[in-house]
Design a protein around this nucleic acid. Structure first.
Length: 581
RNA sequence: GCAUCCGUAGCUCAGCUGGAUAGAGCACCUGGCUUCGAACCAGGUGGUCGGGGGUUCGAAUCCCUCCGGAUGCGCCA
């Protein structure tokens, strides 16, 4: 068990022995400042208030019941209005790190209850090419999937692609109008989806006959017309190939097996709405079928309205989202459903969840969480666009990232071979883009800035990657094998202690991420760890001749554990670590 | 009009289930390489936490209100 958990238990016992009620929160936290010890118990003051007792006296009483000097807590004191500051036993810290070094899970415990977590992310619209707008959801969702899997949960990825709707009638008509069968099967027309879409749209706007064909295609598609479906399928496949190029470059773990698009729910929509109507949940209003949601009423008491079927009989994305919830709960047996979707759709998500609850399709035992995220802004503080005002293609963005990284790597390390430089640039460029996104608080907008994300200073991927390479280089020089290195760890110096304490907190950080679905928590942790290592590396010589063998081995062990922790964190974030750069 | 989110150092952002003197990075200033990768490190300058009320022993954090910004709001997705 983690050191902090052991102390938490000890604190609970001490609280109880001091006469405090069960379940009183101990308020145990890592200390904000070094002079407050390693950990601090903040819960006494709140408890004293409830019991109308003197907080300092109560703190003294708790202190008396803490196991001090028994190998865990070296010393403790009451401070300020009733804080209890704890200083950990250095031997205990050393032993804890020792255990972590040989633990492939780095202290991360299996969940008390394993969950099946369905994660909806990326979900591009296949009518067009992926653009910057798809970046956040794709990266964030993927990192959270990896984190949950590492924790020990069962993750089911769902790529809810936009593969259905009126625009596909138009795109199919364009295929029919401009391409021979041979060209279609060769995939020539779709080498640039953006161009093809624009061409189809222009055609649609300019030519009424073509527009009729397009609309007719929509009808034929819905009726299951063989030729139309074949062309549609061809288009979807091609477009998915484009998306997968991006996934591959980004190192995103989504595969074809995770694809379950809107079209997969077509057959469910009619019975779904019928059921809502029969059960009186949906009612007719101005020809449409709607659900009134009192639970989302404004302060005047006006209920929120969700439309599940249009007046013309057509369905909306809310309808297929409902069908998807049913599928996820019933077929996928979800305990928890995460949706990585733009913050602007938060009302929509609330409505869909509310209807699903109301209909009993998602019982209260199933968690439904909209993991919303903000917009990526340009330097001007407005949504990120190209100079000419177009949306930025994801593929272009990634290429630029790698090119920029290449220039920087070439400048910083001219001795690299062309091949090494390319490999490193890819890791650094893509890593920088991903990390810039992952390290920001998920819910807010952020400013896209090449310079700061590719900087080797500050909370960036290159800085962390660099920290990793220093350790590999250290081991190379030492002539030791990093992966299998074992030695007795003895924490003495301030910098060693600070590093060791940071190393002990990885599991906690991962748990937090698995709970909050906010990868920036883990990023902050890794940045802190890398900083602690840099300080340690500066202050504590390792391979110098004046260092004795025991100290050298201990410090190498700390370095090895740092490397493993950083790389494990990177793996979870989906960022490549490097041995040199 | 209603709803959601946001306003923290010159800039970009953390911190928000209330805890001690509000933190990073950038920028700026001062130091540190014939010594493990200086792509680094140590230190410094810099903040009425949008304004005002309230709850509390204690508020950036919770409540109310005002100002300012973004986004969304029944038949697109």
């Amino acid at each position: 068990m983690a050191l902090k958990s052991l102390i938490e238990e000890a604190a609970f016992r001490a609280f109880s022995e001091a006469g405090l009620p069960r379940e009183t929160p101990t308020g145990l936290k890592w200390s904000a400042r070094p002079e407050f010890g390693d950990l601090q118990i903040n819960g006494v003051m709140g408890a004293a208030k409830q019991l109308k007792q003197n907080p300092r006296e109560l703190a003294e009483k708790v202190l008396q019941n803490l196991p001090i000097g028994e190998g865990l807590i070296a010393k403790a004191e009451v401070a300020g209005p009733g804080f209890i500051n704890l200083h950990l036993d250095s031997q205990a810290i050393s032993e804890d790190c020792q255990k972590l070094l040989s633990d492939p899970r780095l202290g991360v415990e299996q969940p008390t209850k394993q969950q099946r977590v369905v994660v909806d992310y990326s979900s591009p619209n296949l009518a067009k090419e992926m653009h910057v707008g798809h970046l956040r959801g794709t990266i964030l969702g993927d990192a959270v999937c990896r984190a949950l899997e590492f924790k020990g949960h069962k993750v089911v990825r769902q790529n809810h692609i936009g593969d259905w709707g009126t625009q596909f009638g138009m795109l199919i008509a364009e295929l029919q109008a401009t391409q021979t069968q041979e060209q279609i099967s060769a995939g020539i027309a779709l080498s640039d989806l953006e161009v093809f879409y624009r061409q189809a749209k222009e055609h649609f706007d300019a030519d009424p006959e073509f527009a009729d064909l397009a609309r007719n295609n929509v009808v034929k598609l819905q009726a299951g017309d063989g030729e139309c479906l074949a062309l549609w399928q061809h288009f979807i496949d091609e477009s998915l190939n484009h998306a997968e190029d991006n996934y591959h470059k980004l190192g995103v773990s989504l595969t074809r097996e995770d694809v379950r698009g809107e079209s997969a729910y077509n057959a469910d929509l009619e019975p779904l709405v019928s059921e809502l109507i029969e059960r009186g949940i949906a009612v007719e209003d101005q020809g449409a079928q709607v659900v009134y949601l009192e639970e989302l009423a404004d302060k005047e008491g006006n209920p929120s309205v969700a439309i599940v079927q249009k007046a013309d009989g057509g369905y909306l994305y809310a309808t297929s989202d409902l069908a998807a919830i049913r599928y996820r709960v019933n077929e996928l047996q979800a305990d928890r459903c995460l949706y990585f979707i733009d913050a602007r759709q938060s009302l929509h998500m609330k409505q869909v969840y509310a209807v699903a609850r109301k209909a009993g399709w998602a019982p209260e035992s199933v968690q439904l969480e909209h993991c919303s995220y903000g917009t990526i802004m340009g330097e001007d503080g407005k949504p990120f666009k190209t100079r000419s005002g177009d949306t930025v293609k994801l593929a272009d963005l990634l290429n630029e990232a790698v090119e920029r990284a290449n220039e920087i790597v070439a400048e910083k390390n001219p001795s690299l071979s062309q091949q090494d430089r390319d490999t490193i640039s890819l890791a650094v460029g893509i890593g920088a883009v991903k990390y810039a996104d992952l390290s920001k608080a998920r819910t807010t907008d952020y400013r896209f800035d090449w310079e700061s994300m590719l900087s080797f200073d500050g909370n960036t991927a290159p800085y962390l990657q660099y920290a990793g390479t220093r350790i590999h280089s250290l081991f190379e020089k030492a002539g030791e094998e990093l992966a299998s290195f074992e030695a007795n760890i003895g924490v003495e110096q301030t910098a060693e202690r600070a590093l060791a304490l940071s190393l002990m907190r990885f599991a906690e950080s991962l748990d937090q991420l698995a709970e909050s679905a906010m990868p920036h928590d883990l990023c902050s942790y890794l940045f802190d760890l890398a900083g602690k290592f840099a300080t340690f590396y500066e202050a504590c010589p390792i391979l110098k001749s004046e260092v004795d063998a025991t100290t050298r081995a201990s410090r190498l062990a700390l370095a090895a554990l740092t490397s493993k922790t950083l790389e494990c964190g990177f793996e979870i974030l989906g960022i490549q670590s490097l041995k040199r750069m």
